[in-house]
Design a protein around this nucleic acid. Structure first.
Lengths: 279, 279
DNA sequence: GAATTAAGTTGTGCATAGGTCAACCTAAGG
DNA sequence: CCTTAGGTTGACCTATGCACAACTTAATTC
């Protein structure tokens, strides 16, 4: 079969590259750098960037001639389902933060991975830079497991085959860091379970409990608790989670789980979910 | 000169259409509808959408076969300068809301128009759907005037020539509403001033005062107050604003202006702006 | 549940959009 | 002033994506 839109796909790589560049560089990238990273001709990249910046998807700094992600992205992103959900979740996340004094997140499952859409930081929190927009592996986070638990066994099997071995961070990010800054940090890939059967058992426990706990599996020293958010069709559409340093929870996993569950339930009813006890 | 990326530009129109569709439809658009709106072949649109959805920029509902803006947009948008600023502004916007009991916004000036990046609604507010991501004409909003006042006279003249007559809403939106819902609402185009000289005088007043007031010019019955936010180079990078129903302000314009100025100043120092009195 | 209609996907020849490669600018630094 | 690197523009030529149509799949009607 002939590929009819490979040009578009190639041009979109420019956005990908800029997206990851944003995390490591400041002031954006020049035409040459982008051409290297995408392995394309600099002349062509120059033209592509002209088009992209005239649409506002990328932003051109006329002084330095460097490009970065543009304002149009922001304006479009606010029209997505994800943004809508994030907006609605704010009050409930604030409630949870008030109760726990810890940072709270709203996450959704997209493409087999966990996308954090909204973060509310606790007043005491050190790191201000949010996790918003960050994508993580679903198997090793509490949020991911809570949302996977809402799927049917066949769907979970599909996920297992495709995404169980995902790197915690997306592929292009490591591909990009390599040529730019030669930090060869070993990403320790921790599998959520030995095999599918073991993983299904974990998910069944999550279903029974009503929330999931990840004890340092995603970030060492951080206990992650998450509970499912359901919409009016009673389908799991998101997860509310909170990450707490281990020394602050001790072994009080259950009370943390209860708090997160409560916030998730309240948000679910906000969305019109039927009020039923745990099946 | 021959155009080397008109294909890309055409394909990006698909995103534009979806972006505006989001406001009027729910559940997204089908291939045929998008083909109509972009005046392209449905076969080609089908292929373009396949590419766009494999990159996550659009989202495909496998059941209904309808497309809407995708999660990747959200994740990219969170890496933009605009998102960064919006995140940092949150605490200051909350402070302002606590003081005024009215909804507060953070706005930036992009492409001659005002882009609202963050909205914090007051507890009493009726409408929950935010203004985030909405683009408005710069001349008739307080935020726009505050930010234009930070430019040099030549830059303002350039803006006047290109954008003074802008519709309050972007062009494609009206173009899109026409075929979809035949509401022929007349957009009353209200010029900010009769001519450039008069407008420059208005901006000078804004500079002297330190804030701008728009008395129902943007939305009838709403008094809009805005003050400039400066970064570490003392350049105006955004505006904090608040919109108050006229009956609740009365003629207390100045005290409202002072509150907004205070919030904007505090946020400016957060960003590392030099602390100097109004020149 | 068969028949009809609408919506979406895939196949193919042909014209054109975009890739290659080069020359030409423009800005910064010695 | 010259040199060098980054960025833009130009021109040729081929691969890409457009038009048109056939085909598949889903929804609707009787």
């Amino acid at each position: 079969m002939r590929n009819h839109t490979s040009g578009l796909a190639r041009d979109l790589e420019v956005l990908e590259v800029l997206s990851f560049a944003e995390a490591f560089t400041s002031g954006g990238l020049g035409v040459n750098r982008i051409a290297e990273l995408t392995e394309r001709d600099k002349g062509q990249i120059s033209r592509v960037l002209k088009t992209l910046s005239s649409s506002g998807l990328v932003d051109r700094d006329d002084k330095t001639r460097r490009y970065s992600l543009g304002p149009r992205l922001y304006s479009m992103a606010m029209r997505t389902k994800e943004a809508h959900l994030a907006l609605l979740s704010e009050p409930r996340l604030f409630e949870l933060v008030a109760q726990t004094q810890e940072t709270a997140h709203l996450n959704v499952l997209r493409g087999g991975r966990v996308l954090t859409t909204k973060t509310v930081v606790a007043a005491q929190a050190l790191r201000r830079s949010g996790w918003d927009g960050i994508v993580s592996a679903a198997g090793s986070t509490a949020s991911g497991r809570v949302m996977l638990a809402g799927l049917s066994d066949e769907e979970i099997e599909l996920w297992w085959l495709e995404h169980a071995q995902d790197d915690p961070l997306p592929a292009l990010q490591t591909a990009f860091t390599k040529p730019l800054e030669p930090i060869n940090r070993k990403v320790k890939r921790q599998l959520p379970a030995k095999n599918l059967k073991a993983f299904l058992k974990i998910l069944q426990e999550v279903r029974d409990l009503g929330y999931a706990i990840s004890d340092g599996e995603f970030q060492p020293g951080i206990v992650d608790a998450a509970a499912p958010v359901r919409d009016s069709s009673n389908i799991i559409v998101a997860a509310i989670s909170t990450g707490v340093p281990k020394e602050r929870v001790g072994s009080q996993f259950d009370s943390l789980g209860q708090l997160v569950s409560g916030a998730a339930l309240r948000f679910s009813t906000d969305l019109g979910a039927p009020i039923i006890g745990p099946a």
